[in-house]
Design a protein around this nucleic acid. Structure first.
Lengths: 146, 146
DNA sequence: CAACACACTTAGCCCAGGCTAATATTGCCT
DNA sequence: AGGCAATATTAGCCTGGGCTAAGTGTGTTG
């Protein structure tokens, strides 16, 4: 068992940041805007926490925020948000194909999406496509899930 | 996009707890014992942090610890450790099959192993077995990975 | 058996990211 | 316009899990 790799510079967004951006993009796509109260409700955390984080995201240039007035994603923020959303969808599609329960899928994807690297994502995307043509194989896999 | 599910009682071990137990079991299996200094080296954190966490794990009944003298896993702790180790191995096998690079596998598994539920694990285990018999399909997937 | 190196522990700190309570702003409605 | 409900913000706190520095045990070795 090799040691955990040295923790270099934290270049990628924290999982919390990704969760916020994903939700914000989701809200913008479905309602046209993302208010603090909606983000809070969607993430099931307090409005105060949301305000806090939003100010951080503004400082980091991931969104532009005007106090009491609202926010928009910057291109950097939108890129990140789309990226995490894509990971979410790909993983969801993959697990769906395996016949897993929706609740389980949601839980697992929510946890895993922050940790998957681009090449793994590509592999799973390709695998998902290939599996689509293998109903017999899939049937055997699905037998194994509750 | 549904809201994040309500955060009920935190029944399962934190990812940090799982990481510690996994390492401790690994050390016991390879050296016969797990000293503070080894755990710290393996996780690349300070000895002080390890001592701290070990005291917590003792309080939670996952291991038995005697100051300055050493520790052993309880059955509860060993069960948990074996469980997380199994998740780690299964995920690793799966990603290996897809032709991913060892570094990438290590990173992704380390992140994902804490979030995968039993049924997803079973599905992936079964899928891995099925894929073993599909060299052509695997070849097509591997083409996609860097 | 003294002394030294190494292993371990304690104390006190930091940061992320939650929370509540109190306060401020907005906007709608009379 | 004034007032109220909803929304947003601030202040201050907490917990998990890191860290360093300083102090304590332990065991090997001359």
């Amino acid at each position: 068992m090799p040691p955990v790799p040295a923790k270099s510079s934290p270049r990628s967004a924290s999982t919390a940041v990704e969760d916020y951006l994903e939700r914000i993009l989701g809200l913008i796509n479905t309602k046209g805007y993302a208010r603090v109260v909606d983000i809070a409700g969607s993430l099931r955390i307090s409005q105060a926490s949301v305000t806090n984080m939003i100010q951080r995201l503004d400082a980091e240039g991931l969104l532009k925020y005007e106090k009491y007035r609202g926010l928009v994603l910057t291109t950097a923020g939108e890129t990140l948000a789309k990226n995490i959303t894509r990971r979410h969808e790909l993983l969801t599609d993959f697990l769906k194909l395996l016949g897993l329960d929706a609740e389980v899928i949601y839980h697992d994807v929510e946890g895993m999406e922050h940790h998957i690297s681009p090449s793994t994502l590509r592999a799973i995307e390709s695998l998902t496509a290939q599996l689509q043509r293998q109903p017999a194989l899939l049937a055997r896999v699905r037998e194994q899930v509750t």
